[in-house]
Nucleic acid binder design. Structure first.
Length: 390
DNA sequence: TCTGGGGTCCTAGGACCC
DNA sequence: TCTGGGGTCCTAGGACCC
């Protein structure tokens, strides 16, 4: 019998802040953009703040009205990643098979760990204890016979929760679950289900696969059919086929000056390309994303025959996309990305196939190396300098 | 009070080839 | 001279998740 544990850290960003600043323990803490900044949202609210109705993705201004006395803190991603790595290492002392899903959650395969740690229920408690004692944080865990159910289970009794779905009760568990808790069914799908007269997991259970296919397509129907039976066993197992790296910015005030738009686009391209250098990716596809003041959102992408050679190269491709897509108007958000990433090959052919970008790439990578050695050193394109001095 | 940023996967249609 | 069928690659948009 296979057993999977899903571990979800409780209000992760806020909890790390409370750990690093003990005087904040027991107080409402809200991590996100500045509360007085326009267009910022809540990343994480501590459970003390959630009592006031504050939750993730809520506009900061609204959170501030609900809970003006909360402590508002900016996101310190590096710190959370560091803490995350520490906790993942703790997980790996319980099983060699740890699958990290995001900064604050992971699956731990407990199949065959009985000899070392006892039954899975016991091991789950050991994991909670180890994280609490060694990392100073609480986590919620779900234990089930497949990853899909373990993931749902971990959300049942948050925070500091523990929920087991015993073998043989999988379908019964799903029948007891409100639609809002079914992973993979969001607001749009729920509305669509309601229109079909389906309000519960049991309603879906009693609907023939063929009927579901008519409304949700073969893949969607298959997902729903299996979900309500607790049978999405291999949902999180496949390696993802595609990878992408993107960066986007929502401006505090809309942009309509073409030169300013291009300058931000350049900054985004440099951000994306520098990450690709660091992580060893290559790509032939550049994507541009535009969101206007009415929130309408458009994207355009173009795949070339040859790889993006440098940040400058990516910028010139993105500029062409901007020219094609942007017809004027107020831009609220601008994004740039590289899609269909491939492993970057060793740079042995650089001289042979130098399309004039070789120098740009070497320059950019040198800048990156200097920045990595000493992050306090500021080197940047003259066009971006205004950001440094502003 | 309008609505962040970074991802993955799916669909439907078009281009192109055999 | 009214039009098959399959496969692959690409694109734009949408749904969902953390």
């Amino acid at each position: 019998m296979t057993w999977f544990l899903h571990v979800d850290m409780d209000a992760f960003y806020a909890s790390v802040e409370q750990l690093d600043h003990p005087e904040l323990k027991g107080k409402p803490v809200i991590v996100g953009g500045q509360p007085d900044a326009r267009r910022s949202v809540v990343s994480t609210a501590s459970y003390e703040a959630r009592k006031y109705g504050v939750h993730s993705a809520m506009p900061m201004a609204q959170a501030y009205r609900l809970c003006p006395d909360a402590v508002y803190l900016p996101v310190r991603m590096k710190r959370y990643q560091e803490k995350s790595a520490e906790i993942m290492d703790i997980f790996r002392t319980f099983s060699p098979d740890v699958q990290q899903m995001s900064v604050d959650e992971a699956f731990i395969d407990l199949t065959g760990t009985q000899r070392l740690f006892g039954p899975p229920e016991h091991t789950a408690q050991l994991v909670k204890k180890a994280v609490r004692e060694q990392a100073g944080l609480t986590v919620s865990v779900g234990l089930a016979t497949n990853k899909y159910l373990a993931k749902i289970a971990s959300g049942i009794s948050k925070p500091d929760g523990f929920y087991v779905i015993p073998q043989g009760t999988e379908a019964a568990f799903m029948h007891s679950l409100p639609l809002e808790r079914v992973w993979g069914i969001g607001e749009k799908t729920r509305t669509k289900l309601h229109k079909l007269g389906l309000y519960t997991t049991q309603d879906i259970y009693n609907t023939p696969l063929q009927l579901l296919s008519n409304s949700f397509g073969d893949v969607g129907a298959q997902f729903l059919y299996k979900a309500v039976r607790g049978e999405n066993a291999n949902l999180f197992t496949e390696e993802s086929k595609t990878h992408s790296i993107s960066a986007e910015t929502t401006f505090q005030y809309d942009l309509c000056d073409y030169y300013a738009i291009e300058t931000y686009l350049m900054e985004l391209c440099y951000t994306v390309m520098f990450r690709m250098y660091k992580e060893g990716w290559a790509s032939r596809t550049v994507q541009l994303k535009i969101r206007y003041d009415d929130f309408s959102t458009y994207s355009i992408q173009e795949t070339a025959d040859r790889l993006i050679a440098s940040a400058e190269d990516m910028f010139s491709r993105a500029k062409l996309l901007l020219k094609k897509k942007y017809t004027g108007g107020n831009i609220r958000l601008l994004g740039a990305g590289a899609l269909n990433l491939e492993q970057s090959a060793a740079d042995t052919q650089g001289e042979l196939f130098d399309f004039g970008d070789g120098k740009a790439k070497i320059l950019e990578q040198t800048v990156l190396q200097i920045k990595q050695k000493d992050p306090s050193i500021k080197i940047t394109k003259a066009r971006l300098l205004k950001d440094i001095f502003s």
